[in-house]
Write a protein that binds this DNA or RNA. Sequence first.
RNA 1: GUCCCUGUAGCUCAGCUGGAUAGAGCAACGGACUUCUAAUCCGUAGGUCGGGGGUUCGAAUCCUCCCGGGGACGCCA
Length: 561
Amino acid sequence: MNPVQELKRNLSGMVMDALKKAKEEGLLDYAEVPPFVIEVPREKEHGDFACNVAMLLAKQARMAPRKIAEIIEDKMEWQESELLNKVEVAGAGFINFFLSHDWLYEVPFLVKRMGSRYGYNEEKGEKIQVEFVSANPTGNLHMGNARGGALGDSLANILQLAGYEVEREFYINDAGNQIEIFGDSLEARYLQLTGHDVPFPENGYAGGDVIETVKNIIAEYGHTLLDLTPEERRKILIDYALKEKLAYIKKTLEDFGVFYDVWFSERTLHESGKVQEVIDYLKEKGYIYEHEGALWFKSTLFGDEKDEVVVRANGIPTYFAADIAYHKDKFERGFDRVINIWGADHHGHVARMKGAMQALGYDPDKLDILLMQLVRLYRGGNLVRMSKRTGTTVTLDELIEEVGKDAARFFFVMRSPDSHLDFDLELAKKQSQDNPVYYVQYAHARICSIFRQAEAWGIKMPPLEAIDPKKLKEPEELEILRKIADFPEEINIAARSMAPHRIARYVLDLAALFHSFYNSHRVLGVEDKALQDARLLLMDIIRITIKNALNVLGVSAPEQM
RNA sequence: GUCCCUGUAGCUCAGCUGGAUAGAGCAACGGACUUCUAAUCCGUAGGUCGGGGGUUCGAAUCCUCCCGGGGACGCCA
């Protein structure tokens, strides 16, 4: 399923055997083999894989690295496997492996057998939850949510392919302070729109979408809410607005290609008493103390800079209290790992959240928080401030409308989460022709076009067993096979380092190799029919791999452009 | 002041747990369509990896100090 990983395991096993043998024969003295790597050298002249163990062992063995490498090479029984053509010692003490191409020619069959599942790794037997976006249901989705959505969904896809069982979750902040402010804003707008001259709260949600919502409420209820008590009215306004906002958020994310397994309501944590429960528990354990009327969590015990309030002096728990209860709930649901995607503006929250988990007896390392740097939006070179309060914001649905889902998703996931992202809308539109996503999609469409042409000319790809991939000998062809073989391992690395941008990079590279091939070789109409068949197979597996990779990123693979 | 991210070609960015001669796209310049989509390809040019010091066989990568950019430091979320 993962040919490259298999090769690495093979080679590293052979190295281990050689080391052991050398030690037994007294040629080499060491206590323990250091963790070495089998890696792909940058230079082709250095072989297909290289091993650095000799350099790492030099001090322990009190021997020159090159000498050690030579001993390993000598003791390695590589001639017995069909795998290797040559093993050599080079540079400071690298052991370079030159593989025969046989394994590459197996790749097309593997890809065809796996089809849309190519890239998939062995089951790892772990359950991972990814929680992302979790936007406040008080407004529209902004660029930060968009980046989080693209990142979270792609990461979840990657983890699935890497062999984890994955659940996607959206945490609905439908309780707490911002809901109160939201209620104030709705109340003010309702009164204003029904002809009362009341001031709008200073810190309220001033966006036009709140007015729209209230207009909808008036369309349904008219002025009848004026007859209710403020408490009754408030409840109706909030419930209506939350429901509407949530439906909107869900719809927009679906348009963005993001689907959740679980929508988790913060309110239920308060109503079920779980928030109170966890506060009581921590108090009992001595992690909570009272100061100036409020309850504080001793997060400084866990390396945080200062303690954090969990219950305000007015008796209302903070969002942090609910968050502790929420994450406790996550672990109680049996996930082996929990990943949160947060904006970098929440980084101060990381230490205390992990501390809280530790206080509850969970392993804080099982909570991974992927911080993404914030997005800055530009329009025509001018910074657009993104604030729901002031209402000057470009929303995710507007973005999808303007630049398209595919381009938007690719763009957000192309860069590392660590890098600050400047998104200029004018530029994104103007450069849509040169947008890298089209480059990849075009490769896919071009291949589809070859198959359409083949059909028109009455050329059919024969059954697999009748195709000989060994006909593929051009450097471009071998490079493509090699790249395709890398895909599952690439998924693994992306999963391990939580780096979806690696897949964007990967699929760009693969598309480039294809375009290069396409411009120097023909598929249809070559004289050697067996070569034509092999190339058709090659095209087919490129198409499959590109489509699978794009699928990971939530980008479509069009058959025509 | 403390903490997090960041500084790599003119611009936007890659560079997996330290590996051999630092890469790609855009922009610039010069080429390639009577043949499967030129939304493509090929070539040229472009670098004190912000700076100093340290760790070691080996540093863009790790440590430390300094400089620049962004962000967080609330009984907001």
